[in-house]
Amino acid sequence: MDQSPEVVAFIREALGLSPDARADDVAALYQSMETELPLQPDIVFKEDERLYFVEVKLNVTSIDTIARMQLLRELWHRREPGRPPVELVLAARTIRPREEQLARELGIRVIKLPRTLGPPLQSEFKPSKSRITSEKSWKIVSRLLKEKSTSIRQLALKEGVSYGWAHKTVEMLISQNIAKKNDSYVQISDVKKLLNGIAWERPMKNMSIAEIPTSFSDSIPAARDITSMLSDQNVPFAFTGYTAGGLYTGYAVRQDAIYLYLDRKNLNLFSELFKAPFNKSNRNCIRAWIYAPDRDIFTDTQQKEGITVVSPAQTLLDLAGFGYSAMDLTKALVNIYDAL
């Protein structure tokens, strides 16, 4: 499939990497690592000490691509155990559900490419070199939503970031027509554009690592029991998305699923504790959508009705990442955000 700059930029953004995180010459990378492998990825991103091997496909309709990627990872580590860790990424416009599930079970990150990467995709939000959803930038953005109108200096002081970073974030928001400045005060001027920008930069589907049918039949009791049992096991976790959004706002939300962050290493334990065996009677059971955290989300958790949830700022970020399907709940959270 086409590996145009637009495709490369989209994948880079979806992975949350900096604009410079790309090795243009895969052969040169292999040579620098003094390795000879019969397989090569289509694109390699390198940030800090981590490598991302990316396969770019139009359609994935068989396990051949996934098997090839898994073999590449095995050879990469077996021939030289001390090499940098590799994360496999499969970017495709379409992928069959069976293949997508297999990829996720093998720890291969799946990115869905849009049919077009031209102007229609970018009409609501034009990506820049910086990201409003990065951990430090989001501290400034969420604080600005809470304060309504404040100075850059106060934003930096209240969130414990440098004045330079706060200034850079505010200027980025202004350049995107998301915020405006009046003398020394700044305020969000277009909430809709902000939410659309978040959905483009950090879609929650890209962090999904599992969908597990549970033995529960009601979402809130399910979240409460899971909170109790995982806490007893000292497993880091926190509910997010519709689950946390409903608890913060008091809105009735989806009752057929729960949404939580969990480290990948704890997936097997979660399945052992909560996964329901398939039979006709549990087709309508509560499904647990599980996401891998891309930042520290376990430090600032809160308790709501006996349920451990992510912070209001993280909840807002994640709800916006669900896009249009969660827009009503996201706006409801925005409306009360200054009171949380």
Rank of each mutant, 00 (worst) to 15 (best):
P5Y: 05
P5W: 05
E6N: 14
V7G: 07
D20C: 10
D25E: 12
V26G: 05
A27L: 11
A27Y: 10
Y30K: 08
Q31L: 10
S32Y: 13
T35D: 14
P38H: 08
P41N: 05
P41H: 01
D42Y: 03
I43A: 04
E47M: 04
D48W: 14
F53I: 01
V56R: 07
V56K: 08
K57A: 02
V60T: 09
I63F: 13
A67Q: 15
A67F: 08
L71G: 00
E74T: 02
W76L: 01
W76V: 01
W76H: 03
H77D: 12
R78A: 13
R78Q: 15
G82D: 15
R83P: 08
E87Y: 00
A92E: 08
R96A: 11
P97Q: 03
P97G: 04
Q101H: 11
R104E: 13
G107C: 05
I108R: 02
V110F: 05
I111E: 09
L113G: 01
L113K: 09
P119Q: 12
P119C: 00
S130E: 15
T133L: 03
T133R: 05
T133I: 04
E135M: 05
K136P: 11
W138M: 02
K139C: 04
I140C: 04
L145G: 06
K146Q: 15
K146F: 12
E147I: 00
L155C: 06
L155H: 10
V161L: 08
Y163E: 08
W165D: 08
E171H: 11
E171Y: 02
I174T: 07
Q176M: 12
I178D: 07
I178K: 05
A179S: 06
A179D: 08
K181C: 07
K181F: 06
N182G: 02
S184G: 00
S184Y: 12
S184L: 11
Y185I: 04
L194V: 00
N196P: 12
G197A: 06
W200R: 14
R202K: 15
I209N: 09
I209L: 08
E211Q: 14
S215W: 04
S217K: 12
D218R: 14
I220L: 15
P221L: 01
P221F: 01
A222E: 04
L230R: 07
L230S: 10
V235H: 10
A238S: 09
T240F: 03
G245A: 03
G245F: 01
G246C: 02
G246Q: 09
T249L: 07
V253F: 02
V253R: 10
R254Y: 13
Q255R: 10
A257Q: 10
A257H: 07
Y259H: 14
Y259G: 03
L260N: 06
L262G: 03
L262A: 06
R264L: 03
R264P: 09
R264K: 11
L267F: 01
E272Q: 10
K275N: 05
A276T: 13
A276D: 13
P277N: 13
K280V: 00
R283L: 06
I286S: 01
R287F: 01
R287H: 07
W289Q: 14
Y291N: 03
D294L: 02
R295Q: 14
F298R: 05
T299W: 09
D300Y: 09
E305F: 03
T308R: 09
T308Q: 13
V309P: 07
V310K: 07
Q314V: 12
L316N: 10
L316H: 11
L319W: 11
L319S: 06
L333N: 08
N335G: 13
A339S: 14
A339Q: 15
